[in-house]
Structures are given as structure tokens and as C-alpha cells.
Simulated scan of single mutants.
Amino acid sequence: MNKSQLVEAIALDANITRVEARKAIDALIRTTVQTLREGDRLSLTGLGTFCVQLKAERVGRNPRTGAAVKIPSRKVIKFRPTAEIE
């Protein structure tokens, strides 16, 4: 399912227009990104939890040459689904 299909499904389920559904989804995405940028976690009951995790620096290999390459540390978004989806 892509974003436009999600908008359509929410509009039908909530009995609202597609424009209203798109605004709601856009607001959800903006709020989620803002929350994660601030370092907080976002828990959605029945779906799961989003959080930011720091991936440590590591050494990788260039697939062409086999030479060692240093991969810097970085922040990644981690999602842990709810144990039981209804």
C-alpha cells in the first residue's frame, strides 16, 4: 500500500474527504519525524514503537576491491511491532 492508497482507505473508513485524510496523514508524518528528531520515542498502541538508535562505527569491505572501509556511526530509526496484532 502506498500513501495515496492509504489516504483513500482512511477517507473511506473515517467517512471524510480525501483532502482531510491526506492532511491528517501529513500531520502524523510531520509529528513523528519531529518527535524522533528530538530523540523521543513514539508508541502507537496496537501498532508498535518507533525510536532512534545510534549505530556504532564499524569496518566494512569494498565489494570490488575487498579493501577495508570505515563506516561512521549514525542514527537510525528502529521500529518494534506490537507483540500481537489484532
Rank of each mutant, 00 (worst) to 15 (best):
A83N: 13
I25C: 04
V33A: 12
C51D: 15
K3F: 00
N2R: 06
L54G: 09
T82F: 07
A14Y: 02
E38V: 02
I77F: 07
S73D: 12
G46P: 04
T82L: 09
Q5V: 00
N62H: 12
K55S: 10
A83D: 14
K23M: 07
I71W: 02
I29P: 01
K23H: 06
L28C: 09
A24N: 06
T65H: 13
L42K: 05
P72F: 10
A56L: 04
I85Y: 08
F50A: 05
A14G: 04
E38W: 02
A9W: 01
L28G: 08
S43M: 11
R74N: 10
A67R: 15
A11G: 00
Q34A: 13
Q34H: 09
K75W: 11
N15T: 03
A56D: 07
R61T: 15
R61Y: 10
K75N: 15
S43D: 09
A68Q: 15
V33I: 13
K23Q: 10
A83P: 11
A14H: 02
T17M: 00
T65G: 08
T45R: 15
R37T: 08
F50N: 03
T65S: 15
Q5I: 00
L44C: 14
A56W: 03
M1I: 00
L54W: 12
L28E: 05
R58E: 06
S4N: 07
L6I: 06
R61N: 09
E38P: 01
R58W: 12
L47Y: 15
S73Y: 08
F79G: 08
T49P: 12
A83M: 07
L54H: 11
R58A: 02
D40E: 03
A83L: 12
T17A: 00
E20P: 02
Q53I: 11
K3H: 00
R41K: 14
K70Q: 14
Q34W: 04
E86T: 09
N62C: 13
Q5G: 02
Q53K: 14
S43I: 12
I85H: 13
D26P: 04
R80V: 14
K55H: 11
I29N: 04
T45C: 11
P72Q: 12
R58Q: 05
A68D: 10
R74V: 07
G39K: 03
T82V: 14
L6K: 01
L47W: 15
I85A: 14
K3S: 00
R18V: 01
Q5L: 04
E84S: 13
V7I: 08
S73N: 08
K70E: 07
L6T: 05
G46N: 04
G60W: 06
F79P: 10
K23S: 07
A21S: 13
L12W: 03
D26R: 06
A24S: 12
N15I: 00
R58I: 03
R18Y: 00
I77V: 15
